[in-house]
Simulated assay, not measured.
Amino acid sequence: MNFEILCTQVQELAREVGRFIYDERLKFTAEDIIHKGKADMVTYVDKTAEKTIVAALRELLPESGFIAEEGTAQDNGEKYRWVIDPLDGTTNYIHGISPFCVSIALMEDQEIIMGVVYEISLNEMFYAWKGSKAYLNGKEIHVSKASSTADSLIATGFPYYDFSKLDNYLKAMNFFMRNSHGMRRLGSAAADMAYVAAGRFEGFYEHALHSWDVAAGIIILKQAGGKVCDFSGGENYLFGGEMIACNANYFDEFYSIVNKHLG
């Protein structure tokens, strides 16, 4: 399998779906929004985008399985599985703000071997595959070289259904607000991961995540020189709902802070 060619095809698909998502923003109304939870929403745009992605990926890689947010296709233990979030940042999208992304990753058994994150509003395509560099619109990207909290801009996400760690979450935020360049909450974990890979953020942490939120970002970040772990320093970050993502120089310090409050 030629990962580079396949990744190029996936980028073209992400861009095509991104155009559909962008164009539909001015067409749907409040009646088109389905509430899966108080702050967990979906629209026909998410579902249609996912169906389009699944159909195209089946053509590119027959007999592959799918882990997809909107459940339009299933994972039946196939060797190759696509991990898809057709619209990461749906709440942003509904409210007409950025970022919102198409996120597509490919796994071989338990290893992520390709990732594409397309930030639609800025027309930014982040991507990497096994053995490659990480890229943004054709140019190589790297994590930042900052090595301390004092020199870092930190990203996080707010839980929208699991509030069990909320008090400790606020304690971690309090520390970073007082000791770093600041904190940002973009509302799209896919964008957060890609931005760490591009050196825009030094670190990102969040809990109550799903695999489709972060799968593509994981390989992009790793190929850009970054590191990831769960809140306890382990490797249960794809399906475990916890993510610490950081550049290599700052990783140990960043992990120790997040672990102190949330591990």
Score class of each variant (00 low, 15 high):
I141L: 01
Y195Q: 06
K227T: 04
K27Y: 14
L61N: 03
V228I: 13
Y135A: 00
P159N: 09
A224E: 01
G138N: 05
N137G: 08
K47S: 07
M173P: 03
Y160I: 11
L153A: 00
V54I: 10
S148M: 03
I97T: 05
R25E: 08
E242P: 06
I34V: 15
E119K: 12
D213N: 15
G233V: 12
Q9L: 15
D192S: 15
A224V: 04
G241P: 00
E206P: 07
Y127Q: 13
E69R: 08
Y80V: 00
I244E: 01
S211P: 13
L221G: 08
H210V: 05
S121F: 05
Y93E: 05
H207F: 08
Y160W: 06
K27V: 11
K51I: 12
G77C: 03
A134Q: 10
G203M: 00
N174M: 12
E111V: 12
L6E: 06
F158W: 12
A194H: 00
A146V: 15
Y237Q: 00
T48K: 08
S232E: 02
R184K: 10
F204N: 09
Y160C: 09
L87F: 02
V196F: 09
V42D: 00
G65A: 13
V45N: 02
I120N: 14
L13D: 03
I94H: 06
R81P: 04
A190G: 11
H210Y: 10
G241W: 00
D252H: 03
I257K: 09
T52H: 12
K227L: 11
R58K: 13
I104E: 07
F204L: 11
